[in-house]
Simulated assay, not measured.
Amino acid sequence: MTRQGNTTADFGGRQDAARSVGPVLAPFEDIRRIAVLRGGGLGDLMFALPAIAALKDRYPAARITLLGMPGHAALLDGRPGPVSEVLELPVSPGVRPGEEDARAVDRFFASVSGSFDLAVQLHGGGRNSNPFLLRLGARHSIGTRTPDAVGLERSIPYVYYQHEVFRALEVVGLAGAVAQDLEPRVEVLPEEAVRAAQLTGPGPVVALHPGATDPRRRWPSSSFAEVAVRAAADGCEVVVVGDATDVPTAEEIVRLALRTDPTADVRSLAGQLTLGELTGVLDRSAVMVGNDSGPRHLAQAVGTPTVGVYWIGNVINAGAMGRSLHRVHFSWVARCPVCGVDVRQVGWTAERCEHDDSFVAAVPPDAVYADVAELRATSLLLRGR
Results as ranks from 00 to 15, higher is better:
A197Q: 07
F108R: 08
D30A: 15
D30Y: 01
A196I: 10
P70C: 03
A177D: 03
L375H: 02
V95A: 12
P80F: 00
E251T: 09
R323K: 13
V24Q: 02
L258M: 01
F132P: 13
R376D: 00
S111R: 15
M69L: 10
D77V: 07
A35Y: 07
V229E: 08
V150M: 11
P23W: 15
G94D: 09
A212R: 07
A299H: 03
W311A: 15
I312P: 00
G290K: 05
G203I: 01
M288C: 13
D30S: 12
P295V: 03
G5R: 05
L66C: 14
V171S: 08
I316F: 09
M288G: 04
F47P: 09
L75F: 06
E226Y: 11
T306N: 10
A225V: 02
A51E: 06
P60L: 02
R195S: 15
T274F: 04
F359K: 03
E191T: 11
S222D: 13
G81S: 04
V241N: 00
G347L: 09
Q300G: 15
A193R: 11
R3Q: 12
L275Y: 02
A370K: 13
L76K: 10
V91Q: 00
D292W: 02
N314D: 15
G203T: 00
Q4G: 07
N6V: 13
G143W: 11
V368Y: 04
A320T: 07
M1C: 05
T263Q: 08
G114L: 02
D243N: 14
L136T: 11
D16N: 04
F11V: 04
H297Y: 01
D16W: 00
D30C: 06
R344I: 05
E29G: 13
G322H: 09
L182Y: 11
Q162Y: 08
D101M: 12
T349C: 01
A301I: 11
V150L: 14
A233R: 12
I156L: 15
P184A: 01
F116G: 11
V171R: 04
L269C: 01
D117V: 05
A17N: 04
E164A: 14
F116T: 12
R376F: 03
N317F: 01
P184L: 00
P215E: 04
A168L: 00
A149T: 13
G303E: 00
H355Y: 12
R127P: 00
E153T: 12
D243M: 10
A26Y: 02
L269R: 03
S20M: 05
L133H: 04
A232F: 01
L174S: 12
V241C: 11
V372W: 08
T274Q: 05
V150C: 10
A361E: 14
S268T: 09
G5W: 06
L89H: 03
V307G: 04
